[in-house]
Design a protein around this nucleic acid. Structure first.
Lengths: 250, 250
DNA sequence: TACAATACTTAGGAGTCCTAACTATATTGT
DNA sequence: ACAATATAGTTAGGACTCCTAAGTATTGTA
C-alpha cells in the first residue's frame, strides 16, 4: 500500500468535536430553560413538549406521532399523556379512521397552557439576538443540513421543512435577493424565511426531494429581505395552493 | 400616538423562531443519541454526562461543579453520583482543601466506561460531515456567540472557551488565514480551531474579555487552514505557557 | 379465515429531578 | 473568640420520565 500523493487530508476532527460540544451545551441550556418555561405551571419539560406539539399541529394527533416527534418510546408518551389528561389539559379519544389508534386533542385549558409555546422563550430570543439576521439565516441553514442528514439516516423523524416539501423550489430565481419559491403561496422568498416547521408542509417524493436538496445546497446564502413572513403564510392556512406554477410532484 | 417615519422594522420573528425550532430538534436528536451511546453499558444519558465531565476534566471534580455544568440541581447530581458509585465507576472522597466539599474521581472501570466520550458519536459525526469545514466553523462561531450570550445573562455556566480565555488574542494577525493567536501555546490559529472546551482555559478578566469579544465579533470568518490541532495543543498540557508575547491579564 | 403487522396500553422498575429541610464546615463581623 | 451567616453537600419525599417486556385490540393480507 503506497502513500498517495496530495495533502494528507487532516480531517480536522477537532472542529466537528467542538461543534458537537456546542450543540450539547445548547441542549443543556434548552432543557434548563424548559424547566423555567413550564415549571411555573407545574408542568415538566416533557409535558410542555407534548402540549407544544399539539398546539403547533392544531388538530388531533396520535400518540405514535408524538413519540416519533419527540424521539421517545410509545409507553413514555402513554405515561405523560395520562398525566396531562388527569390535569385536564387534553383529551384522548378513539381515532375515527382507525380504532386501534387514539386521537389526542387539547382542551381549552390545555390550549391556554400551551400559549407560551407560541412565543420564543425570553432567554433564547436574547441569545438569538446576539446574531445578526444573516448569521441567523446561516445558522438555520446549517441546522437544516444536519437535521436533514439525521433524517436521511433515520436518526430523527421527518421534520416539516422546506427542503422536504413538494411546494419548495430552491433557487428558482438565481441571483435575486429572494431566490427560492414556494408554490403553495406562489411567492418568492429568501433564506431568512426558510421553514423548519411549516404548517403547510407536504412531503415531496424522494427523487424530487434529493434534486431540490442539491439545488439548495449549491445556492449561495441569500442576504437581505426575506418575505413570506408568518403572517403572509398563515393567512393562506386552510386554503389550497394558489395558481401559478404548480408543483408537479413527479 | 403618531406613527413614526421610517421602515416598520419587520423584526423578522419567524427567523429566530425557526432557529429555536432547529436547536430544539437537535436537542431531541442529542438526547436520543445519548441513549444509543450509553444504553449498551446500562447507563442513562445523565450518568453518561457525568462520566463525560469527569473524563474531560481529568482530575477530581466537585458535585457542585457538575451540577452547574449540567444545569441541574445539587440533589440530582447527588442521586446520580450515588448510583455511579454503586456501579463502581467513580469514587467520592472529601475534598482536600475544603472539608465540606467532595472530590469525585473516576475509577479505572469508570475511565474505561467513559472512553466513548472522547469519540464523537457516529450519527453526529455523519451529520456534521454534511457541512463543509467553513460551514462548520461558521456554525461553531454562531453557537459560541449564543452560548456567550447565555452565559452573560447567567442562563448557562461559564464554558472553557477561547473567547473567555486570558490567552486568547482574537484577530491578532488581521487578514491572515490564521488571524487569532493563543498565548498559551504561542501560536496562530484560525476560526476552525476555536475551542469551546479547552483544557488550558483560564478565565480572563471581565474588561479584557469584553474587549476581546468585540474584536472577535468584528473579524471576518477566516477560511482555510486552522492549525492548533488537538494534538498540538494537548502536547503542551501540563506545561506552562510558552514565552513570546504573554497575556498581561490587565 | 388464519397470520402477521400495527397502535397502543399495562406492568414493573430504575433513575431523574425537583423542593424543602437538615448537617457540617467555613467565613465574617464585632 | 464566637455568634451569625454563608456555603457545600446530603437526606427525605414524591411526581414524573423512560425503558423493556408482555399484553390487547384492530387492521391488513395471503
Amino acid at each position: 500500500m503506497t502513500t498517495r500523493l496530495g495533502p494528507p487530508r487532516p480531517t480536522e476532527p477537532a472542529l466537528a468535536d467542538q461543534v458537537f460540544t456546542g450543540l450539547a451545551k445548547m441542549g443543556i441550556a434548552l432543557r434548563s430553560q424548559a424547566w423555567d418555561t413550564w415549571g411555573p405551571q407545574e408542568l415538566t419539560p416533557t409535558q410542555g413538549a407534548i402540549l407544544a406539539v399539539l398546539a403547533r399541529r392544531g388538530e388531533a394527533v396520535r400518540p405514535g406521532a408524538i413519540a416519533r416527534e419527540l424521539a421517545v418510546t410509545a409507553p413514555t408518551v402513554s405515561d405523560s399523556v395520562k398525566v396531562l389528561a388527569a390535569k385536564g389539559l387534553l383529551q384522548v379519544r378513539r381515532a375515527a379512521d382507525d380504532s386501534r389508534a387514539r386521537a389526542i386533542t387539547l382542551t381549552d385549558r390545555g390550549r391556554r397552557a400551551a400559549r407560551q409555546t407560541r412565543e420564543l422563550p425570553e432567554a433564547m430570543a436574547q441569545a438569538a439576538a446576539a446574531l445578526n439576521l444573516d448569521e441567523q439565516a446561516a445558522l438555520l441553514k446549517a441546522l437544516m443540513t444536519m437535521i436533514r442528514e439525521l433524517q436521511v439516516t433515520g436518526k430523527l423523524p421527518a421534520a416539516r421543512m422546506c427542503v422536504t416539501c413538494r411546494f419548495f423550489r430552491p433557487n428558482a430565481h438565481p441571483g435575486k435577493p429572494m431566490p427560492h419559491h414556494c408554490d403553495f403561496v406562489d411567492a418568492a422568498f429568501g433564506d431568512r424565511a426558510l421553514r423548519l416547521d411549516c404548517p403547510e408542509h407536504e412531503r415531496a417524493e424522494l427523487a424530487a426531494m434529493d434534486q431540490a436538496w442539491e439545488e439548495f445546497r449549491e445556492a449561495p446564502l441569500s442576504r437581505g429581505r426575506a418575505d413570506l413572513t408568518p403572517e403572509a403564510a398563515s393567512a393562506t392556512s386552510g386554503r389550497s395552493p394558489r395558481g401559478g406554477r404548480r408543483a408537479t410532484n413527479r
